[in-house]
């Protein structure tokens, strides 16, 4: 219970302050979960190792969605992997961010007319930053991360909130692409 006499801040303001402090930590320590579906993934090793060294931004790879803050979707997503991607995204702890790599995630890229892949990633999960290019070079990947940090700083990286608010819309899109998510495969009968 905060004493109101000495701190005239309302509860919202206090919360906002805490949130800003939290944002400082969050943008300086982004842990990634790499969902290496497409060829854009090849840009990540140089970004991580000594050439560009993303650790100096406080970023690093993580093993599971629970631990990670930012989901990297590196390229095209087939319908089969989309289902897994959504599952993984929902397992991440909030606040969580998504970075889409390459033209494949923006509009389908060279696979835009394929029957097996989705074209627009942000119809299914909220994407905070897109890195354009086919494939994007490493500088732009790094640039994309710095953009994400700026968005977090300016409180604009709100995709995860959007996923709560427009959940019906996302779910409807997911359903339209995948059908009812009911798995009956050979392992589970």
């Amino acid at each position: 219970m905060l004493s109101t006499k000495f701190s005239p801040m309302s509860k919202e303001e206090v919360d906002r302050k805490w949130w800003e402090i939290g944002d400082f930590f969050r943008r300086n320590s982004l842990w990634m979960l790499m969902y290496c579906t497409g060829c854009c993934a090849i840009e990540l090793p140089p970004a991580m190792t000594s050439a560009y060294d993303m650790e100096r931004l406080g970023m690093g790879p993580m093993a599971t969605p629970r631990q990670a803050d930012v989901l990297l979707v590196t390229g095209y997503l087939s319908l089969k992997t989309l289902r897994r991607l959504i599952y993984t995204y929902e397992q991440m702890s909030e606040p969580k961010y998504v970075v889409g790599f390459g033209s494949c995630t923006i509009n389908g890229g060279i696979y835009h007319d394929s029957h097996a892949v989705i074209n627009q990633l942000n119809k299914y999960v909220p994407v905070d930053v897109f890195v354009a290019g086919c494939m994007p070079n490493t500088e732009s990947v790094m640039n994309g991360f710095i953009d994400l940090m700026d968005l977090i700083k300016n409180k604009k990286a709100n995709g995860w909130k959007d996923y709560h608010e427009r959940n019906d819309w996302y779910k409807a899109n997911q359903k339209a692409a995948l059908g009812e998510v009911k798995i009956h495969d050979e392992f589970h009968e």
């Binding site: 969605p65 897994r84 798995i183």
Partner: peptide, 15 residues
């Protein structure tokens, strides 16, 4: 059952 399974859907507890 909502655990990390590398994105797989598993419904059998024994597994």
């Amino acid at each position: 059952m909502d655990t990390y399974t590398a994105g797989n859907f598993i419904y059998t507890e024994e597994l």
